[in-house]
Design a protein around this nucleic acid. Structure first.
Length: 418
RNA sequence: CGGGGUGUGGCGCAGUUGGCUAGCGCGCCGCGUUUGGGACGCGGAGGUCGGAGGUUCAAGUCCUCUCACCCCGACCA
């Protein structure tokens, strides 16, 4: 995109009411807009990041045989009553409203119940199983107190996946494949080395659920990590009994702050029983479908990545999710410089390489500062100087110095394909 | 929900024991000089001081109510 067309602005100061680093930087860089406490809009650059993360998640979900759908945000009371989760005393984060006729409706904070109920239409036989569906959805949660910028809002985007299996064996197999897929996702978005499978409370259905915890001081959770096995235990279940059950050595475990970027858990057939999701097995008997539920907080993930990589100059995006690969700066507006910059911009854009082209004819310092604040991985400068050398100036966001490189080398590095 | 705090142009802030036309920096507009790390000069625009009510000759400033936002705690399938 051309910078002159980007309506958002960068700011030197963050709003005083934002204390979390992620919200401060994302607002200053024009990625998000705060609508109210815990509620943020995603602007062009922020949306690109979200879309890039989604695309990675989507690829990994498709790879393990899950299909994408999109459920509704309005939900029926009766479904949640069947599982005893409608009552505000049971679930205290409900947003509720009503239809014109006065019938209560719930605003989606999760989709386990509606999806499972819907699947009754499609699952009747063992031949219909397994079935795995996922979606990217806006969840609405009436948190008592929003905090940590986009890491814990009242409205946020989540990828939620639900698996329907014939039995525990089939379920476990898929559960394991999700674990592997999630680790791949976190690896691809650049936080693989800081994200750990973590044993956490399994609620009323199983002893444990598994969380994916990314180590960061911005996190709200406390985990105990065993670096050698790369396994962690959430503080909420960190007891001597659990430690020995998992074969871990307490003295070798490190206490760390972390943020939960993913969570997977098994329901057994409990929820299926409550909602009446059964199938007829090969032996002619009716059985409950084994259910699993798997979430990745997309917007939280964006916040965690922001916190993890940002430096004193601003955002720093991993290549895989950056809103653009290149921030192209044109110094001066002489005809040769402009022609060269336009040409490079068109060439890269046409080959699918994302470019933010700073065509504002602003002062160099302003453009350099913006390139840094926006966190674009590569900065390319075209000026009279570079033209004279017949080179481009190239600098990575994470490196200190710039170098002069040939067009071929630049294109190569950016993965240019005709 | 308990405790603490903050609301003054788009953003960051100042504004004394109530007193005159509410200031400053950044940003914005115009003109000029500049042009490789957030330039400079001159001239401008922009504010129901969160909202409502009250006290007073006079309220950004005092009182009451209210709304929003932030922090700590609690909560967090």
């Amino acid at each position: 995109m051309r910078r002159s067309q980007l309506f958002t602005k960068t700011m030197k100061n963050a709003p005083a009411d934002e204390t979390s680093l992620n919200a401060q930087l994302l607002i200053r860089a024009g990625y998000i807009h705060k609508e109210m406490a815990g509620v943020y809009a995603y602007l062009p650059l922020g949306l690109k990041v979200i879309d890039n993360i989604k695309q990675i998640v989507r690829q990994e979900m498709e790879a393990i045989g899950a299909l994408e759908i999109i459920m509704t945000n309005l939900q029926r009371q009766e479904l949640w009553e069947k599982t005893d989760r409608w009552d505000d005393d049971k679930v205290d984060i409900w947003f509720k409203s009503q239809l014109k006729n006065g019938n209560p409706i719930g605003l989606a904070w999760s989709h386990e119940e509606p999806i499972t109920d819907m699947m009754r239409n499609y699952i009747a036989s063992y031949r219909d199983l397994p079935a795995n569906v996922y979606q990217f959805q806006t969840k609405l949660r009436n948190e008592l107190r929003a905090k940590s910028g986009i890491m814990r809002g009242r409205e946020f985007v989540m990828k939620d996946l639900y698996s329907y299996s014939r039995d525990e064996v089939e379920h476990q197999k898929f559960y394991d494949s999700v674990t592997a897929a999630y680790l791949k996702v976190f690896d691809r978005v650049g936080i693989g080395d800081k994200t750990f499978v973590t044993y956490a409370s399994g609620g009323s259905f199983t002893q444990f659920s598994h969380e994916f915890q990314t180590v960061t001081d911005a996190g709200e959770d406390i985990i105990y990590l065993d670096r050698t096995s790369k396994l962690a235990v959430n503080k909420e279940v960190f007891t001597d009994e659990v430690i020995s059950q998992l074969g871990l050595d307490k003295s070798a475990m490190e206490e760390l702050k972390a943020s939960e970027v993913g969570n997977i858990f098994s329901f057994g057939t409990a929820k299926s029983d409550q909602l009446g999701l059964n199938f007829t097995d090969q032996d002619g008997k009716e059985k409950g479908v084994v259910l699993g539920s798997y979430g990745i907080g997309i917007t939280r993930l964006m916040g965690v990545i922001t916190e993890l990589f940002a430096d004193s100059k601003g955002l720093v995006w991993p290549d895989a999710i950056a809103p653009a690969a290149v921030y192209l700066i044109r110094i001066g507006d002489s005809q040769p410089v402009t022609a060269e910059a336009d040409e490079l911009y068109n060439l890269l854009t046409a080959s699918g390489i994302g470019v933010i082209y700073d065509d504002r004819n602003a002062r160099p310092g302003d453009m350099f500062a913006d390139a840094d604040l926006l966190g674009i991985p590569n900065r390319v400068v075209i000026s009279e100087k570079t033209l004279a050398n017949e080179k481009y100036e190239w600098k990575q966001r994470t490196s200190e110095k710039a170098e002069q490189i040939s067009r071929e080398k630049l294109l190569n590095m950016l993965g240019f394909r005709k």
